[in-house]
Design a protein around this nucleic acid. Structure first.
Lengths: 230, 230
DNA sequence: GCTGTGATTACACACTTGTATAACAACCGC
DNA sequence: GCGGTTGTTATACAAGTGTGTAATCACAGC
């Protein structure tokens, strides 16, 4: 039998990249897959393909797939809490206005987004079973709530006990979480800007202040005004 | 070589059960597994083992694994909305009291529970991608919110527009969802009964009524009173 | 220019997954 | 009693999973 010539198996182009870039792209690929199809979609092969590398690299940079998952979750938690602080960037010193900006930012894309809530839900089980991840989750949650509580405390209302302040922060945080959840899962269930309006009114009612005056943060109310400042 | 005698492979005990029982136990096993370890833990073999049958049965009663998953989700949605109505069982006719009972029931076990939220999160991706499941989710969500809205409307406050009523229902629902989420994931983060207290106070503030008087529904406040009626 | 050395790829392996199919056991009508 | 029907089990199979290991490539130091 004639000896068959081995077909020229095209080897993937070799490209050397920095460790930071590789880790980042692998984590990004993991996030995208978990957000879209849950943890079951984030296989080593799918992750590698999305990141443009071969599966071996994930074990080279992260000891195992679990470690990559854990790193990705850490990245997610850190990113979500940072968004709260980002919303206060460039906002004036008026306490009510700052609180309104914080609330509004939490009820708009990219926070309110089907992929984000999918990502969050995808990690939930791992969080519940891994003590380390649970600690990270709690830290992130408390940091976010503390930001909110600080804004509430700055309102300068009289006669507010520590317990009351804590409970108000928990309640307002719950409103944001609940609206975030529903708005993300059922995006077409609410009119544009409706979530922000409801959030401002509800938190205002709980705290006894009027936040609905600060509608500057509802871009949907100003469809033509694309620029806030230039 | 001496012929080895085949070891007596013990065949699983044959037990014939009703179709209803089989479907129910298979669904229950699916729920338990999804709640604990996510969809990835709900394999056909694990489900069958949990239900005390062999994997073949799942394909006999449900055409495929996906169909079982879908049936299980339907079961979950129906069960969750029913719990709201159950809470109003045996409560008096006072509108405020009925609303308070509804709120309290939503912020206590078995609704507030790590497994329940895990179950909910486990289905999220399938819900987002399957149009049929998404419709079921929306139906269940709206049914629950409508129950809440009806209770709010019954309060008999003056001058309430339809839009305002809708927004109040969304806001109150969001509070319940948010507290449910946080209380379920971080059970030790809140004192017993604290979620109920916060929920009653916050919804009351939004609606302009005082619900905190109706503390009958906080069993943690009556540690020794194990019986409600006999 | 040569030689390590480490990043990157390719391949192999044992295991699990969902599904298909055949064997088996109990109940039904007659 | 007895064959047929159907619920139930057992086994087989192809595809996909994470992981281990060897081969390859590019670059740095001398």
């Amino acid at each position: 039998m004639a000896q068959l010539v081995a077909p020229p198996v095209e080897r993937r182009a070799f490209f050397r990249d920095t460790e930071a870039n590789r880790r980042e792209s692998l984590i990004a690929a993991t996030q995208a897959l978990v957000a879209e199809g849950g943890p079951q979609a984030a296989t080593v092969r799918a992750i590698a393909a999305r990141a443009g590398v071969t599966p071996g690299l994930i074990r080279h940079y992260f000891g195992s797939k679990d470690e990559l998952i854990r790193a990705a979750y850490t990245m997610l938690v850190d990113g979500m809490t940072d968004k709260g602080a980002d919303a206060l960037e460039g906002v004036g010193a008026d306490p009510e206005e700052r609180l309104a900006a914080f609330v509004a930012a939490s009820l708009r894309p990219p926070v309110v987004d089907g992929r984000t809530v999918g990502l969050w839900a995808g990690y939930l089980h791992q969080v519940q079973q891994d003590a380390g991840l649970l600690a990270q989750h709690e830290k992130g949650y408390l940091r976010y709530r503390d930001q909110l509580q600080a804004l509430i405390a700055d309102l300068g209302r009289a006669e507010v006990t520590a317990t009351q302040l804590r409970q108000e922060a928990i309640a307002c945080n719950a409103i944001l979480d609940g609206l975030w959840l529903e708005g993300s899962v059922l995006p077409h269930g609410f009119a544009p800007g409706e979530l922000v309006r409801i959030g401002l009114r509800a938190t205002g009612a709980i705290l006894g202040v009027n936040l609905t005056r600060h509608t500057t943060f509802i871009p949907e109310l100003y469809p033509t005004a694309g620029k806030t400042e230039t």
